[in-house]
Design a protein around this nucleic acid. Structure first.
Lengths: 165, 165
DNA sequence: CTATCGTGGTTGAGAGTTCAACCAAATCGC
DNA sequence: GCGATTTGGTTGAACTCTCAACCACGATAG
């Protein structure tokens, strides 16, 4: 009870025992879960989860089209990362780029029919993997708690993130 | 109340609304948090979080030494990933490799004094970033819930993972 | 003793991400 | 209007990670 904090090197204050355990659990869970999702998609579809997220967001957008910067923000990607990714997806014929008439700096990315078809093919397997990896081990209450926790973290890192609203 | 599930393409059953929100929150929180930690370490130390984890695990080990395979498992890395990473850390003089006398297939990785020094330098900033990004926005109770949730996920993906025991 | 199989680890190529530099179009200030 | 700044996006190089192939050593079986 007296010693609630360990020290990394005899000097640096580290996390409390509770925090330490939570941190390691979070780290392990995120890395294993994202790793398993990436592996599943890479094996079945030949592309990583980040690309799936791009296709999925485009499929929900009006006209299946989004501005690059808007798309980047909804998939948590940098402009550069998205630009490279859209280039690859364009090479495969799943997305097209077009200039925006109103503002000629803007590039619009549009999901093609081929892209939508690939997404539809891969969605069931991906959803099953998410369910199996994240939701099956959790109670309904834990799902609710998880949402609150993640939104709190999100809001702390990026106050502009819309916390479920 | 009647429609608790959306459909991605009119055919595929998707997650419930609660699950959908929790999934997006988890995705956003993990990507932003890991992104911010990687950015902080890259800026201050010149290496990514995965390398920090390697150095930290070695610093806690007896003789500051671990077998490659054991080290790989504690940092959730593949053998290949760890081998490449240790190569880089060796180049910078922070880790050394040695053969194991008993089993000559085994490679032992040891943290050097220089490596320990770098870790000690970077630890305060890294811990501060973890605290700021993950623990500051959460209540003590949420930290406990998070640990339980992550251990449940961990155990679901890898039954051999020691859930806080 | 030797052939086979399993384990521990390395290597090189290919793919994705990051960072910094850069370009073009729009907006601001005077 | 016109230069300066900001915004939106692209590019190339460096770096990390993944995958498959591979090598060496140890264990196992005949």
């Amino acid at each position: 009870m007296a010693e609630n904090r360990t020290t990394l090197d005899g000097v640096t204050p580290w996390l409390s025992a509770d925090e330490q355990r939570a941190w390691l659990a979070w780290l392990g869970a995120t890395e294993l879960l994202m790793g398993s999702l990436d592996a599943q998609l890479q094996r079945d579809a030949g592309f990583p989860h980040a690309y799936y997220a791009i296709l999925a967001q485009l499929s929900h957008a009006p006209e299946r089209t989004l501005r690059m910067s808007d798309l980047a923000s909804v998939v948590n990607a940098s402009a550069s990362r998205l630009s490279h990714a859209i280039g690859k997806l364009e090479d495969r014929g799943w997305v097209t780029r077009q200039q925006c008439a109103g503002d000629r700096r803007v590039t619009l990315a549009t999901l093609t029919d081929a892209g939508h078809a690939v997404l539809s093919e891969q969605a069931p397997g991906h959803v099953a993997a998410v369910r199996k990896g994240l939701f099956d081990p959790l109670s309904a209450e834990q799902v609710t708690q998880l949402e609150l926790i993640c939104n709190a973290v999100l809001h702390g890192l990026d106050p502009s993130a819309d916390c479920s609203r």
